[in-house]
Design a protein around this nucleic acid. Structure first.
Lengths: 122, 122
DNA sequence: CAGCATCCGCTCGGATACTG
DNA sequence: CAGTATCCGAGCGGATGCTG
């Protein structure tokens, strides 16, 4: 039988997963990997504002959760690239929709914020 | 003309929006509101582990961003319920897919974690 | 190039107490 | 019921320096 996983229950393991995914950096990494494998420093450059330490942590967690895969090519110096796993690929459509929702609806959000702030001031 | 919003640029305002949405509590609140208006303490009870302070902050931010709407009914004592706005409703499908991905893929994640940890130990 | 190690400020968020 | 106010500890994450 199937266990009744429930993300609204704080003792459910799905909460941990949600916690990992509901992270700005993890989302951007997953979205960036959608087009194919990307190397460490390339990710670091592409995702502006992401420090090397946090990128490292994020990649390690995503790899542990089975969403991405790390592969080392024995060049000199060594090349490491990260790619989505099949499991990770089941998430990318959702991630893309999510990450780019802001780009499509930025104007609406900005005007909502302006209206909200104006109501407080006036 | 349209500005080129880019969520990968840390100076782009979309980053702030992503930061707000990429939040465990915000996601759970939005998901919970999908079925219709819900009152404050009902949300607090439904979303286990969510403190009253953080719920309050989360609701205020979501309201400011125009995703949810607060309405007060003059009962005694007063009733306040929160509902999705049309803008918020454009997100709910994505939010639901996202929030419940963990429930559907929990087994795969758990086994990936076990494999990862075993590789380190062994 | 692809990281790890360390330090540390700052914010998130939990606990608690109080209000209309 | 639906919040606000305050305190405070834990940890996120940025900066810096070093390694194979």
């Amino acid at each position: 039988m199937t266990l009744a996983y429930d993300v609204f229950d704080d003792r459910c393991p799905t909460r941990m997963v949600l916690d990992r995914l509901a992270d700005k950096w993890a989302l951007l990494v997953l979205d960036r990997l959608q087009g194919g494998p990307v190397r460490f420093n390339q990710l670091r450059r592409d995702i502006r504002g992401l420090s090397q330490k946090v990128l490292s942590q994020t990649l390690k967690r995503l790899e542990r959760d089975g969403l991405i895969e790390r592969s080392v090519r024995p060049t000199v110096p060594v090349s490491v690239d990260y790619a989505l796993t099949p499991l990770g690929r089941t998430l990318t459509e959702t991630v893309a929709a999510f990450a780019h929702w802001a780009e499509r609806n930025m104007a609406a959000v900005l005007s909502a914020q302006a209206a909200y702030d104006a109501a407080l001031t006036g």
